[in-house]
Design a protein around this nucleic acid. Structure first.
Lengths: 241, 241
DNA sequence: TCAAGTTGTCTATTATCATAGACAACTTGA
DNA sequence: TCAAGTTGTCTATGATAATAGACAACTTGA
């Protein structure tokens, strides 16, 4: 366990990241007791105060809980998220026995950029509705999503989404019975400040970025989106046909 | 552009991450000139010296190049990496017009944990060969991969891989003509210190973690692996059937 | 009950981060 | 040629990060 200095990441933060990795990949199971602060300090070769700061940060995020005189205990695990052709957030979360919720952050109109127009099969500059929403499982934010739809095909989509709080219901409102995922691209980056606030995520944490387009059963593009998932809260399952 | 203090991530690092996001998502195209240091400082509301440190970090990693008196210019882009049932690193890299390379880091024997045994259809404690390798495209490290194979089925696999430098060729050496990807799980985390060194990646950068198992045409598990990709250098394409 | 091991809190010191200002060195276009 | 705009380098100062040591408060098991 060797850490790196002057990388722009504070030592306590590197220790916190290391412990969190341990929780995420199962080296420290939920409910289990972490090594003592002195032992952690030894393994990472930092001062005990530095470890304390790392643990304090994890505790504030609810990943661990310190008990004076006894030890520090783990409490967490990830949501399994299949990347299927037929992907419904509410079904995935519900399948995990958790309560799905959606919340509108912002809706506005804007003209289509070249890339968005291509994805949606429209002309550059065509009017689009942009819907920003956050999706949660049991009060824990899972992802922030930016959705673009044709403003001609889905007039007043923002207001509809505000009530429906679900893309599936929004589409149903316009007569779309079924749809499927056409393309999906996945990468990762560091969360930006506004997403960090919406996801209740500390700065510097990684997010999985998913660009995708949903199409109707006849193949016509309906909505294209960019979703940012808190990487520490989900695990994507890719189906290989 | 609002940044966050006392998050364990230095301001200069947050600015560097922001600019890098801009490069990754195309706001700043390759070859293009970035805004001036003073302008960047204004948008992020930090001191010009802080911006200079951010740019210096990006320059050291080869993402930008500063020209005195003129400006700072972008130089970079990502490798498109399809997550298919039939995935061959060398083919993917070759398709992008780049030269694929593999390099053995370490090979050793170890007993199967419960999880590894399940993936490979073996008994817990069965002897496994663990092969650590790094894969590059034109001298740029793309991913570090830890592979586990049955030591009974593939005796001396480490030595074979050291010569072949490719998992496809290793399997062919044991008579495996074809194989496919059975399962794939994707998530992201912050790079750890040893992977950072192997990937020539700064600490605190995100990596895409891919857990997968390859099986023979008859469905028998051959090798299970955990690969860590430098998120800034790749973009996964998920095929939706 | 008690010793060993744990987390919590305090003081103090040194190195790094971030800001601020000034000016040099260089490029570009009018 | 020259002015405006760019990156490069220097000094200086206050805030924060990290280390170090000591001891209090509490839990656990012998």
């Amino acid at each position: 366990m060797s850490l790196q200095e002057s990388s722009g990441v504070a030592l306590w933060r590197q220790v916190a990241d290391g412990i969190e990795r341990g929780i995420a990949d199962g080296r420290f199971a939920a409910g289990e007791k972490l090594p003592g602060e002195i032992e952690i300090a030894d393994t990472y070769r930092v001062n005990r105060h530095t470890v304390r700061r790392a643990l304090a940060a994890l505790a504030e995020r609810g990943l661990v809980r310190a008990e004076r005189g006894s030890g520090t205990y783990v409490e967490a695990q990830r949501l399994a998220y299949p990347l299927r052709s037929r992907t419904r957030f509410s079904e995935i979360v519900g399948a995990g026995g958790r309560e799905p919720r959606g919340q509108l952050i912002d809706a506005s109109e804007e003209p289509a950029t070249r890339e968005l127009a291509r994805e949606l099969g429209l002309k550059t500059g065509a009017p689009l509705v942009r819907i920003e929403s956050v999706r949660l499982a049991d009060r824990t934010p899972i992802c922030v999503s930016t959705n673009w739809l044709s403003a001609d095909r889905f007039p007043g989509a923002g207001a509809v989404f505000a009530n429906a709080r679900s893309m599936t219901k929004l589409l149903a409102h316009y007569g779309v019975r079924d749809y499927r995922r056409a393309s999906t691209r996945v990468t990762a980056t560091i969360v930006d400040a506004s997403d960090a606030a919406r996801l209740d995520l500390a700065l510097g944490r990684p997010v999985l970025v998913v660009d995708s387009t949903d199409v109707a059963t006849d193949g016509k593009p309906l909505v294209t989106k960019r979703a940012r998932f808190a990487a520490e809260r989900v695990e994507f399952l890719v189906e290989n046909s």
